[in-house]
Amino acid sequence: MKWDFTSVFANTDALLAGAAGTLRIFAICLVLGLSLGLVVGLGRYARTWWFYLPATAFVEFFRNTPVLVQILWFYFALPMLLPFEISPLMAASLGISLNSAAFSAEIYRAGIQSIDRGQWDGARALGMRWAQAMRRIVLPQAIKRMLPALTNRAIEIFKMTTLASAVAYVELLQQGKLIASLNYNPIEAYTAVAVIFLVFLWPLVQFTYVLERRLKRDE
């Protein structure tokens, strides 16, 4: 057989729309996932039960169910419980964000725990409250240590966005499927999708290497 990308190039518009959709849901899930993850991670670290228990339940629930199942559930089942419709973007963002929050929460917790107890002592001896010590002293140091792991999480989120195609959200894989079924060229269509992901992700992965090297140098 022969590779023939003409039908893919003829659909550049569709792929661009898909790339835009991928970037949009990635941005939403990155912000939601990492910020909610911080809250949950603080809960996992906290000693007060009303913060610790819900955070732990959250992490266990979302780590132990597949993201794809969560997205399908949010899309098909959740509207039964709500007075309004759920769009494909909402369902997919919810699933991916909550799942990422659960995983990044563990990164935050481990990062916070890695900070020497003496830092807490130093902060509290000045009269800082828990939240002040966390915000001013512990988190700035912990986040720096967590950066490589959080960047890895960002890469995972980027790849997870393809799951949104399961609810027909317009993103790269969804558009690839569309092109493949219209032109009977799955080989070229999915190759194109894979190459576009590679182009987006390769620099991000290089960035984590740089971060890790810099971190080693600083410590």
Binding site: G118, Q119, R124, A125
Partner: peptide, 19 residues
């Protein structure tokens, strides 16, 4: 936190904030 402002403490390991 009020009391700790009135009673300062210096530690064996300094516990300076490295950042």
């Amino acid at each position: 936190t009020q009391v700790r402002q009135r009673i300062g403490m210096v530690f064996q390991q300094f516990n300076l904030f490295p950042h």
